[in-house]
C-alpha cells in the first residue's frame, strides 16, 4: 500500500489490523487506538480519499490502497490549515484524539468547504474527545474552513464576548 505518498510492500498476518500495521510495522504512531468497537475514531485515517477507522480495517484489505495519516497532512513542514486551526483555536488538550479528529476534519473540508456548525458536529460525530467538550474543535474547523476558502477566520471566542 501507499502511505503518505510512500509505497510499502510487506507480508502481514491476515488478522493484523491496519492501525497496528501503521503503528507497529511502519512506526507511524500518530494514529491512535482508543477503543475496540470502532466508536472513538482515534484511529481515523483517509483511505482512497475517504475517512475510515483503521482499527476496523484489515491491513490485507488495504493492499494497493492509498492511505493518508496525520503524519502526512503537513506539506514540506507547513501545517495544514486544519492543524493550524487546532493550534490557533485550542482544539486540543491531551492530544490523543487529535490525529483522528484532524483526519476527519480534513476529509470533511475536502468534500464541503463551507460547513455550518451542525455539519461540522455531525462530521466529527465518530471521533470522541473527552477533554474539549468539542467547543473549540468546532471553532478550529471553522478556522480551517475559512482559511482554505481564502477568507479571514472568525475572531476567537476570547476576543468576542459570547
Amino acid at each position: 500500500m501507499t502511505v503518505n505518498g510512500t509505497r510499502y510492500d510487506r507480508d502481514v498476518e491476515p488478522r493484523t489490523l491496519l492501525v497496528h500495521f501503521l503503528r507497529e510495522e511502519l512506526g507511524l504512531t500518530g494514529t491512535h487506538v482508543g477503543c475496540d468497537t470502532s466508536y472513538c475514531g482515534a484511529c481515523t485515517v483517509i483511505v482512497d480519499g475517504r475517512s475510515v477507522k483503521s482499527c476496523t480495517y484489515l491491513a490485507v484489505a488495504a493492499d494497493g490502497a492509498d492511505v493518508r495519516t496525520v503524519e502526512g497532512v503537513a506539506v514540506d513542514g507547513t501545517l495544514h490549515p486544519v492543524q493550524e486551526g487546532f493550534w490557533e483555536r485550542h482544539g486540543l488538550q491531551c492530544g490523543f484524539c487529535t490525529p483522528g479528529m484532524i483526519m476527519s476534519s480534513v476529509a470533511l473540508l475536502e468534500q464541503n468547504p463551507a460547513p455550518g456548525e451542525g455539519e461540522i458536529r455531525h462530521a466529527i460525530e465518530g471521533n470522541l474527545c473527552r477533554c474539549t467538550g468539542y467547543h473549540n474543535i468546532v471553532r478550529a474547523v471553522e478556522y480551517a474552513a475559512a482559511k482554505m476558502r481564502g477568507e479571514e477566520p472568525p475572531a476567537p471566542d476570547w476576543e468576542v464576548p459570547s
Binding site: 504512531t29 503524519e71 503537513a74 476570547w158
Partner: peptide, 23 residues
C-alpha cells in the same frame, strides 16, 4: 493573556509520544 500552547506543535503533527508509542 492568551498564548497558543507550547504543547500543540508536536501533538497536531502526530508526533506526541504516548506510552504505547514508545518501543
Amino acid at each position: 493573556g492568551v498564548v497558543r500552547r507550547k504543547e500543540d506543535p508536536a501533538l497536531i503533527r502526530g508526533e506526541g509520544l504516548y506510552v504505547d508509542d514508545i518501543k
